[in-house]
Design a protein around this nucleic acid. Structure first.
Lengths: 254, 254
DNA sequence: GCATAAATTCAGAATAACTGAAGTTAAAAT
DNA sequence: ATTTTAACTTCAGTTATTCTGAATTTATGC
């Protein structure tokens, strides 16, 4: 850069800011008091800019701010391990987590509001890539002995969120067999009721085991019913390794 | 700004950074995870830039970072009040203070290293503007009674920094009259010696009064000797109101 | 699947930035 | 003090960048 170009830029900056920055009575020109203050601020600007450049240059693997969604059961069971694995293996990535129901999360991933989500697998949806994270058997849980017909006939059925992904699976298989149904939106609350003998339920085995007292009897659903927790991402996602990068973090042992 | 211009800037920025910032599968384009992180950094840059603009636009009166010098006696007596006045009446100004001897401060103001300085006035120097801040009588101080001839004959003369501005004034007037001379670089140390009767001295009356115990006898110098504390600034200084602005702060009551 | 609105691309125009020569000005040397 | 020297500024012309408007491609709604 030529000296004359520097001189013109100095003059131009003074004009733009409306402040005399240089005392040209000295050679080389010295900063005025105002110039010193502006210089300090300018250095702060450059520092912020070089921080920007630093993050964009030393970028490897998963990097950036990811927005992810989790269904409630996944946010309790999968999320903590996921975040620990990310902290360790993807230090340049940070996460904004939202909890919602499967349908809503599908919409939000599809619309680009979220980059990825962990939901209960349902029928394939166009534009979404699904990767199975966990395959979980559904079991009945009760404190009272007896086969399923007896339970359905004698105890209230504790039904988890019928509108949720897992809730719809449960509804399909229970059909109209329940003599009485109580709807709840909390796995922990349902299991507390089961533990006290208030009713029985059908839930993923890991969720039952999480809260069940020793008295609780688990009965596998006769039809081999299960649900898949899947990672959904947009198929048209620009960042090619977003899907595999996040999927890998779910497979890590912590 | 046209939409096409925005589009070109977006593409150009992605190329410069080497990062895909936008996911163009959406309309309008959405930020990628990396884009979100870069966006946060970019906002920090803009924030720093608007802070710069703010200081250069709301500028009134004394503003900026001023570098000032004080001779030791002035840094103790004038500086605190000056800084308090500045804090109150020139909130947009901040100060970097250096303490040095008058000659050195003259050079540093002349070379532009300092914007202004408070020194003991000497012969006028080309290129420096002088404004009198304080007119101070010089007095002899001693614990022992008797006229000056007796003091000079019987007690050591405590001589403040002979190389300093005030020191040269003192040297000129004392001449060779002292039977013994002790040189010191601290007014406080000199007055401590005077207080204990170790010797006598010749100093500005305010400096004597600052440390003298009641026993000390002050004798005005017969020739009406005095020193002026003056504010020096460069005559060719670009910032026109620097001199009057600083001078005014010295006149304020706090 | 088609229509519509929106983003991108391209070529030319406008703007901004830069270079080199000439003219000033501050510091150094006589 | 005056002259010399080196450095900064100004000016004119060139180069590079950015912007606009029309044509094209692309996502979304019906």
């Amino acid at each position: 850069m030529t000296l004359s170009a520097v001189s013109m830029q100095m003059k131009s900056l003074e004009g733009d800011l409306g402040v005399t920055l240089f005392d040209r009575a000295h050679r080389p020109p010295k900063l005025t008091p105002d110039g010193r203050r502006i210089c300090d601020h300018a250095e702060a600007v450059l520092k912020a800019e070089s921080a920007l450049l630093a993050t964009s240059q030393s970028r490897t693997g998963l990097s950036g701010i990811y927005r992810m969604g989790f269904v409630p059961t996944a946010s309790v069971r999968l999320l903590p391990d996921f975040l620990m694995a990310a902290e360790r293996d993807a230090p340049q990535a940070s996460f904004e987590i939202a909890t919602d129901l499967s349908d809503a999360l599908e919409d939000r991933v599809l619309s680009g509001d979220l980059d990825a989500a962990v939901i209960t697998a349902s029928s394939d949806q166009r534009g979404l890539q699904m990767d199975v994270l966990r395959h979980e058997a559904l079991s009945y849980a009760s404190c009272h002995p007896g086969n399923l017909e007896v339970l359905f006939a004698t105890l209230p059925f504790l039904h988890f969120l019928p509108k949720s992904g897992i809730g719809k699976l449960i509804a399909n298989h229970v059909g109209g067999r329940a003599s009485r149904t109580i709807t709840l939106d909390s796995v922990e609350a349902i299991m507390e009721c089961v533990n006290r003998g208030i009713g029985f339920t059908l839930l993923p085995a890991p969720d039952i085991e999480r809260f069940a007292v020793p008295d609780v009897i688990k009965t596998a659903e006769p039809g081999g019913l299960s649900r898949d927790l899947v990672l959904i991402t947009r198929t048209t996602s620009q960042t090619s390794d977003l899907r595999t990068g996040i999927y890998t973090l779910f497979q890590k042992e912590v």
